[in-house]
Amino acid sequence: MANHKGVLVCGEIADGKLAPITIELLGVGRKLADELTEELCILLMGGKTGGLDKEAIAYGADQVYVAEDSLLDGYNSDAYTQVTANLCQEVLPSIMLLGHTDVGCDLAPRLNARLGGGLAMDCMGLSIDPATKVLVSTRPIFGGNAYATVLSKLARPQMATLRQKTVPPAERNDARQGQVIPVENKIDPSGLKVKVIDRIKEEVEGVKLEDAEVVVAGGRGIGSAQNFEMIRELARVLGGSVGATRPPCDEGWTPVMVQIGQSGKVVSPKLYIAVALSGAMSHIVGCLGSKVIVAINKDPEANIFSVAHLGIVADFKEVLPALTSKFKELLPTQK
C-alpha cells in the first residue's frame, strides 16, 4: 500500500476531443494530487489519440499514458479493462478516477474486481482526509434520499466514479509542462471474449436533453402517450427538450432516453417544468441543479412542490394548453 502513489485519471475521448467529464476529473484530480503532493497522471486510450496528450497536460496532467491500438477504437469492455488493469499494476496509483458515464460505469467495477481496490460509484464530492491522507468520497444513496461518505482504509487503489457536472472543469494553461509515455503492453486477444457487433445512435428530436436550457418533464400523471403530446408541444414552443420520470418511459409514452433521475440523465437547465410528477427522490436528483423549477400538479401535497420555486396546483390538462399558447404569444420569434 505504501507503494501506491499518485492520482490516475482514466480519460475519455468523445468526437476527437477530451470529454467534458475528463476535464472535470483533471480539475479535481489536480487538487487531490496537490494535497498529497503527488503527481497527476491520465490514461488516454483509442485508435488514435492525436494531440490530446498535450491538451491533457494543459489541463493539469503531469504524465500522460497513451495507449493506441485499433482494438481500442471505441469502447470495448474487455480490451479497456485489460489495458487499464495492466497499467494500474505497473504504475500503482493510490487514487484512480473515472467518469460516471457509459464507459466508467462498466469499466470501474470490472477494474476494481481485478485490482481489489475500494470503489465508490457516482460520487458528487471527493476530498483528502487531512489526518490519514485517504480519499473520502461522498455519494448519493437510496436514490438521493441520503448521502454516504465512504473510504478505503487498506484497499488500493482508492477508486471513484464522478458524476458529470458536479465539479468545475480544469482551467487550461498551454504553458504547462508534462511527460507523454506510450503504453507498450500489447493487448492479449485471447482475453477479448465479448465482441462488439454494432453501435447504434438513437437521435432524439430537438435539442439534446443535457444541453437544453429549458426542459419540460412529464410524469405518471400524464396518463397516456396522447397526453404526452402536450409536453412535447410546450417544449417545442420554448425551444427546449422533453424529459420524463420512469413511468412514462416504462409505459412507452416517450423513449427511455429522455428519462431524468437516478437511473436516467442528470440535467441542469435554466428552467425545468415538472408536470404531473410527484417528485420521488429518485427523479428529483436528476434535476436539482436546475436554476428555476416549476411544478404543475393537482396534488398540493406532492413532494415536487418542496423543491419547486414556482408552482400551480391544478390539473395539467387545464394548465398546459393555456401556458403553451401564452408562451406562443409572448415569444413570437420562436416557432
Partner: peptide, 27 residues
C-alpha cells in the same frame, strides 16, 4: 474494501411561490 463513515439526509427546502388565477388557464 470500502467502509461507510457517514450517513446524512440532505436538508433541502425551497419556498415555492404558488401562482394562482381565477381559473387554471389564468394561473
Amino acid at each position: 474494501h470500502l467502509e461507510v463513515t457517514g450517513l446524512s439526509v440532505p436538508a433541502r427546502k425551497t419556498e415555492c411561490e404558488f401562482v394562482t388565477g381565477n381559473t387554471p388557464g389564468e394561473a
